[in-house]
Design a protein around this nucleic acid. Structure first.
Lengths: 135, 135
DNA sequence: ATAAACCTTAACCTTAACTCTAAGTCAATA
DNA sequence: TATTGACTTAGAGTTAAGGTTAAGGTTTAT
């Protein structure tokens, strides 16, 4: 009946610290507790954590994630709104990836340039060695 | 002869503050100064700034960028090493983009799921309305 | 010649997302 | 029984990458 914070930590790759931190920040709420106050996560909680990780991994801020979770807590009447947020988020991430590609192109050019310079440098060096041998 | 910090700021889209900050952090050095201490950036400095932005835009930390610039200051003997760093960096960024795509897929699935739930919800709602009309 | 618009340094502030510490509770094991 | 070790809380500290403020020097346009 329920997972300990450690078990959840292992399954989600979030440290126990982070799990408590997320709870404190209001990303996750209504986690069951034992009589002595120990957290007991349900399957549902794991589902929500999955969504949180998913959003976080695509670069959504904890603040935005909290807003999303607050909407979720309001129930089905916010389904459309939440759906729209996800769609918007997806668009943003796709745009970000496009940007990255553009910047990466520049890095590639720099690599070409540096490679050229290096080859030139190598040639000069070996040329100098030859000259030294001639002396 | 040389650009003021403001001109450079306009050309690079980095605030004057950030330019000074980068200099203090050792990302950029040997900027010429007027007698009264005012910075005068050369074309070369702009080139270096271009590279810095390029690395930063692809997610390299200022710390790593500084390491790279330190190597540059050592001269051509570090060309190969620098080239390798850039190639490694490019690989990392490409891997990151791959990861993003994977996570984005999950977001897409969530969108599908939410859309389904929403449609269901709408149906239930309109069904309820019909029932009310019947009464 | 004086105000506006620059420039300087030094030092402190901010935000996000953790990360750690201290001090204490509770359950199981040697 | 004593200790080990996982759990709890509140709150302080950390890091990256800047931003802001204070207190002042310099240049330029009118």
């Amino acid at each position: 009946m329920g997972y300990t914070i450690k078990q959840v930590s292992e399954r989600t790759n979030l440290s126990a610290h982070v799990l408590r931190f997320y709870e404190k920040e209001g990303l996750l709420s209504n986690i069951n507790r034992s009589k002595s106050g120990i957290r007991s996560y349900s399957e549902d909680d794991l589902e929500w954590l999955g969504l949180i990780c998913c959003l976080k991994n695509t670069g959504m801020s904890l603040k935005q994630i909290k807003e999303f979770m607050d909407l979720s807590a309001e129930g089905k009447k916010t389904l459309k709104q939440r759906c729209d947020i996800l769609i918007e988020h997806k668009k943003n991430v796709e745009a970000q990836i496009q940007e990255m590609h553009k910047h990466l192109d520049k890095v590639s050019h720099k690599i070409d340039y540096y490679t050229m310079q290096y080859n030139e440098y190598k040639n000069v060096e070996s040329h100098q060695k030859l000259e030294m041998q001639e002396v």
